[in-house]
Design a protein around this nucleic acid. Structure first.
Lengths: 116, 116
DNA sequence: TTGACATACAACCAGATGGTTGTATGTTTG
DNA sequence: CAAACATACAACCATCTGGTTGTATGTCAA
């Protein structure tokens, strides 16, 4: 296990965990469709503002959502690239199924455009 | 919320939760590459047999892994279709981003070939 | 300036999760 | 048959999770 693999696994943990809650998936859908303030989001659910705020924080830590401050509001929007990075993890699994272990490096390099 | 949507959300909860653990993702990779008995899998990890067996059970309940009995062994293999169904959930999110809400029905019908 | 609004975060709690050990049951083998 | 092996599952435990309320801080409007 290299350190980068460890980081990838940490990232995968955070991403899948963030997606493993229906309220968070619903929030993500809304903010992918367009910016919403945290309180606008909170108004949609039958739970406290603080609970919704924590869900947004989980999505934000996973990189699925970003926020920008506008006056007293925090506007959240969905990060499409993070969603795509989850898709690429699943593609890696599919490639394992096909036995194409040797090509995983290329796949990672393509979906993970760091230097080198 | 229709009942079917509820069931889809339950399924999504189970799938993403199953994937939100690195040991389970690793097990899934192995069994996607080929059948393995539970004890063969357990030998690969620094935890008890029972712990690995529970991880396999979580994957199985989510539909990501199936088992067949052969003598005293239980051979586990990865279910590619379940992996693909997760991919299609992510595609739905991408389609929300593009604002194509109206086409989600087609997408679901395609990836979810039930009658009607 | 004062009050209402929007956010953030700490502290707390019940229940779920991921691990453990122990026990029971079925299967192969000597 | 008896012993070893493979699995399954219950009971237990520490930690994490998803919710709550309460408090603090900053921003807008009258």
């Amino acid at each position: 296990m290299t350190e980068r693999d460890e980081q990838n696994e940490d990232r995968a943990d955070a991403l899948f965990h963030a997606l493993a809650d229906r309220t968070r998936r619903d929030i993500l859908r809304r903010v992918l469709a367009g910016e919403h303030s945290v309180s606008a989001l909170a108004a949609s659910y039958d739970m406290s503002f603080a609970a919704v705020q924590k869900h947004v924080a989980v999505l934000e830590r996973a990189g699925l959502v970003s926020k920008r401050r506008v006056g007293r509001e925090a506007l959240a929007s969905g990060e499409l690239e993070a969603v795509r990075s989850v898709s690429s993890m699943l593609l890696e699994l599919e490639s394992v199924w096909r036995g194409r272990i040797a090509r995983i490096d290329e796949l990672l390099a393509e979906s993970h455009p760091t230097k080198e």
